[in-house]
């Protein structure tokens, strides 16, 4: 177990063919967890940069003293559907959640083993998928996906909140009131932590980005300001960083054609908002379609 947990995923997948014992060991959750501990670089922030047609991703591992780049190509043949309209909605323990732009086609993917799981169709699947969040829920010991579905009609805007649990492979609706708000014209970065679902929105009344906070356990909702004024031209992102909510604001320099990223962390997000600027990354990255940050 100590030896095998230090092998690469590709070698391990071949080792499943050694014997039935090895097969069940390699699929055992505690082995997978041990493997994950060994495989992760420590104290590392990774950025995922995606190109526009979503077939190619670059991972930037930012160690305290160096930057390394790894490329992830999701265009391998095993994928069950055309990925060109899918976007990364979240990542957790090496798994990624992808969903098709505004539609209800959602999948969870393990890029290392090239395995995909298409989620069953949620209720209200013909409503627009406004936000999708993905996380590991330690209370239920399960991976969950939260979907905010929105109905737009001339006279009415309505939202439904649904949660998918991976072990039960099914959706359930939860009672929560989300005020009517208009959709931003492009991606809504979002993230899920301890049952609280955050997404970035564009507040048309004051013309800046803000953050919406939906507590899926209590069903409560609030809208909060960002620590910096971010206009509609910028594409900020939110994610989790060392168990804190992190806001990543790209600062694009037109002359140098380079982007620098400011990373803000929010501490004690439940008590009161207190943002601190933690890192500035770059400016060695080119302008990119979207950026994700995750950390170990």
């Amino acid at each position: 177990m100590e030896i095998l947990s230090r092998l690469s995923v590709k070698s391990l997948l071949r080792c499943k063919s050694v014997s039935k014992n090895w097969y069940s060991l390699i699929r055992n959750p505690s082995f997978i967890s041990l493997h994950h501990t060994h495989a992760q670089p420590h104290d590392c922030i990774s950025l995922i940069r995606t190109d526009n047609n979503f077939t190619y991703h670059s991972f930037y591992y930012l160690f305290p003293d160096q930057t390394s780049i790894q490329h992830l190509d999701l265009s391998f043949t095993e994928r069950p559907v055309d990925l060109s309209c899918f976007r990364i909605r979240g990542s957790c323990n090496g798994l990624m959640c992808l969903s098709e732009w505004f539609k209800a086609n959602i999948m969870i993917c393990n890029p290392a083993t090239r395995e995909f799981r298409l989620l069953p169709r949620p209720p209200y699947h013909n409503w627009l998928t406004n936000h999708v969040g993905f996380a590991f829920d330690s209370k239920t010991n399960d991976y969950i996906v939260v979907r905010v579905a929105t109905l737009y009609e001339f006279s009415r805007i309505d939202h439904k909140i649904q949660i998918y649990g991976m072990s039960g492979d099914s959706w359930k609706e939860i009672a929560a009131t989300v005020p009517n708000h208009r959709l931003r014209p492009y991606d809504h970065p979002s993230t899920l932590m301890d049952g609280v679902f955050y997404w970035l929105c564009y507040d048309f009344s004051i013309e800046v980005c803000a953050i919406d906070v939906l507590n899926t356990v209590e069903g409560s909702f609030k809208r909060r300001a960002l620590p910096v004024s971010v206009g509609s031209e910028s594409r900020p992102n939110i994610c989790l960083l060392n168990d804190s909510l992190a806001l990543v604001v790209p600062m694009y320099d037109n002359q140098l054609e380079e982007t620098q990223f400011d990373v803000w962390l929010m501490k004690d997000y439940r008590v009161q908002e207190c943002w601190t600027k933690k890192y500035t990354i770059g400016p060695h990255l080119r302008k990119s379609a979207s950026i994700w940050v995750s950390a170990k």
């Binding site: 071949r14 014997s19 014992n21």
Partner: peptide, 15 residues
């Protein structure tokens, strides 16, 4: 290859 890994670890192939 996994066949060689099997020999190194003296594992019997039960497939």
């Amino acid at each position: 290859p996994h066949q060689e890994v099997r020999e190194i670890f003296h594992v019997e192939n039960d497939y």
